[in-house]
Design a protein around this nucleic acid. Structure first.
Lengths: 329, 329
DNA sequence: CCGCCGAATGCTTTCGTTTGCAATCGAAAC
DNA sequence: GTTTCGATTGCAAACGAAAGCATTCGGCGG
């Protein structure tokens, strides 16, 4: 039973409860003798302070909400790994919220507030309207990772328009002229921005551009959409807005008997671990997850310290990783 | 600012604090008139109860620890998805703990205890000695998902020995005689048990068995180990103890110019989503994740209700999913 | 030996909520 | 108009811990 409290320790050590409290709170005034005595008693009893009770008076819970709706895309496991490790290193505890089936986002906001989280990290590009600001209005430090800059809340990620341009420039430089864009969900800001950058840059370079949307960032969506595209007149190369989509597209191309990259070029975005697997071997745009995740945590903690500063946006540069799905220069 | 408390609502509604508390705790005695009045005041002020403060008196936090060290294996994203959704449906909140870099497991135990979690779900097969019992000793309901039954704590998963036997029987039935086992980490109970079942059954059926271990349940480990195996005399078919290992092995086989399944048979275990992707298309043993995850939550809640019952084990049946990496019957 | 002062310690209130207990209310039965 | 009794309500004491304030301690200079 985990029922040993401050008072128990105080009693056993024969000191006041305040003394016990002090030996367990950093930077409090306790003599070495007192500290030793209390620590001995605490060890005997197996005491450790109740963080929830402590949070009542300190108003610090060390709890942060980790909110996502991307439990289908393997890249998010990498992201969760980085995020949980990083938060643990900073002494913060992630309360995980799966938004996938949530019809009413306001419930999640309330829920996290009820647990007095100090901050929230939104790890997703596809978010209900006003979700991020709801947290800000509730007074919790919120940062939107992989989101679109709005000026309303802290955002960290990449410049998706620039990433689209980079994809277009790469394709054109490799000599593809008729190029296509395959997005994820049409409303996702990532899809929209990547398309915008891609189309503008490709046209500026004299390319012929087409585009379409797979309904989701998933293998099946990418495969299905590419199969559909291949049944009609097709482009010479496609920029798929996400690696897992690209893998789906690759699978459809192979099924249709096309050789990649000879018959069809493909470039993805993310550079998830799987993209480097030898039997997948995607040419793709690397998104610097570690920097983004670290930036998200930094920004959140920065807001802890300074709740009223203006919203800030941090975008990190991407680069091409050249593998096997685009013909060489 | 999220500073509105019970007292604020009581004051505005002109009633006692107890009355407010009662309208927010299920099954308390409040008149309809009182409830309406309090709810109006609460709405005006934007009040919602502080769960952490509540937990102080009720001794219920609704918090459960979700502990894992498998942030490399994509199958765990599916598992996290099921787990988080299931917990949310039951009104429980997962506190995520990443064990990967943790040198001292006792710290995690203490940490979770400090947050007064009511239960812990261990989602991993590879666990430091005595980790599960440490939770049990601390009085928190712990269930080990994907673990080996010990009789010491609640365990839910599959019969890994039987799964190994099933793999062996399948290979022998397809006419493979010289068969190999490729495990993950040698100390992982899953690796050990699957090997035991596999070797025994294959030998009983007149097979010739060899075995080796990739150091981890990861693509690179599987690919590396299979590359090593292919450089010497090789078996006709391999049972790889995990799908992601199998995909690695598949990649190595393809790189060596072998046709699968004609030159080399492969069977995996898990049936993760990716195994069904058309360009991977693994023949594998399906592990019923949804049943296991549901079982884990059931067992945990069952222990909430009855803390002193004997440890229980729930194993679910597996079945073969026939795809493209084993020759047909 | 006395006075002084900073460091240690203890007392008590407080954080936001629940809950046992006692007091009050209201309506039905007389 | 009384009684009576169950349903509501308020009061006050917890829950486990932090921190302001006042008190005591200990060592120093004089």
């Amino acid at each position: 039973m985990t029922g040993v409290t401050l008072s128990d320790v105080a009693q056993r050590a024969g000191v006041s409860r305040a003394a016990v409290s002090r030996t367990f709170t950093a930077g409090a005034s306790v003599s070495a003798k007192m500290r030793a005595r209390v620590e001995a008693a605490a060890r005997d009893l197996g005491y450790s302070p109740n963080l929830l009770a402590r949070s009542l008076t300190t108003r610090k819970t060390q709890l942060v909400g980790l909110v996502s709706n991307n439990f289908q895309n393997p890249v998010f496991l990498q992201i969760f790994d980085l995020l949980t490790k990083g938060l643990q290193d900073r002494g913060l505890r992630p309360l995980l919220v799966n938004l996938s089936d949530e019809t009413d986002p306001a419930r999640s906001v309330q829920l996290l507030r009820q647990y007095s989280v100090e901050g929230v990290i939104l790890a997703t590009s596809h978010l209900p309207q006003g979700f991020a600001s709801a947290f800000r209005d509730a007074g919790v430090a919120v940062v939107h990772a992989f989101g679109r800059p709005t000026g309303q809340t802290d955002v960290v990620g990449i410049d998706n328009v620039a990433a689209g341009e980079m994809a277009a420039q790469t394709l054109m430089a490799r000599g593809y002229r008729h190029v296509g864009f395959m997005g994820g969900p049409e409303q996702a800001s990532t899809t929209q921005d990547r398309l915008a950058g891609f189309a503008a840059a490709a046209q500026a370079l004299g390319g012929v551009v087409s585009h379409s949307f797979a309904g989701a960032y998933s293998f099946e969506a990418g495969r299905g959409e590419m199969a559909r595209l291949l049944s009609g007149p097709r482009a010479e190369a496609y920029f798929c807005a996400d690696d897992v989509l690209t893998i789906g597209a690759l699978s459809a191309a192979q099924a249709a008997g096309l050789r990649v990259p000879d018959d069809l070029g493909l470039i993805g975005l993310n550079d998830m671990a799987m993209a480097g697997w030898a039997n997948i071997n995607l040419t793709t745009i690397h998104q610097p997850f570690d920097a983004i995740v670290r930036g998200a945590m930094d920004l959140m903690q920065d807001r802890f310290a300074n709740p009223d500063r203006a919203p800030q946006t941090r975008l990190f540069p991407c680069h091409i990783v050249d593998r096997g799905t685009l013909r060489p220069l």
